[in-house]
Amino acid sequence: MSFETGKKWLRSFIRWYHRVHVIGMDHIPMTGPLIIVANHPSYLDPFYLSAICPRHIHFMAKSEAFSNCLIRWFLEKAGAFPVHRERADIQAIRIALSLLKEGKVVGIFPEGGIKEKESLHELKQGAAYLAIKGQAPILPVYLKGMDEVLPQGSFFLRPKPIDVLIDALIFPPEEGSLKEKQTKLSQQVMEILLKLKEEIPREGTKIVDS
Rank of each mutant, 00 (worst) to 15 (best):
K179I: 15
K197N: 09
L157H: 08
L100Q: 05
R87L: 11
I138A: 07
F47Y: 15
V20T: 07
V83H: 02
A92Y: 01
I36H: 00
A128D: 01
H40L: 03
K181Y: 05
C69R: 14
E199W: 12
G126T: 01
Q188V: 01
Y43L: 15
D26R: 08
G6C: 02
G153S: 06
K181W: 08
G204F: 02
H18D: 01
F155D: 13
M25P: 03
L157R: 09
D167R: 00
W73A: 11
G103S: 00
I95K: 12
K181L: 06
R94S: 08
E111K: 06
D209W: 10
S2T: 09
L185C: 07
E4S: 13
S186R: 12
G145V: 10
A65V: 08
R94C: 03
G204A: 01
S119P: 02
L97K: 10
K115E: 13
T183C: 14
K206H: 13
L178S: 12
I132V: 04
G32C: 01
P41I: 09
D147P: 04
Q187R: 15
R94M: 11
P41R: 05
S154H: 14
W16L: 13
W73T: 12
P29Q: 10
Q125I: 09
Y43Q: 14
L97S: 03
Y48M: 15
T205D: 14
F155R: 15
S50D: 04
H58C: 06
G112T: 07
E199T: 12
I23L: 14
S42N: 00
W73H: 13
P54N: 02
E203S: 12
V141D: 03
N39V: 06
I95Q: 11
K117Q: 15
F13D: 12
H58T: 01
K7Q: 03
R85V: 03
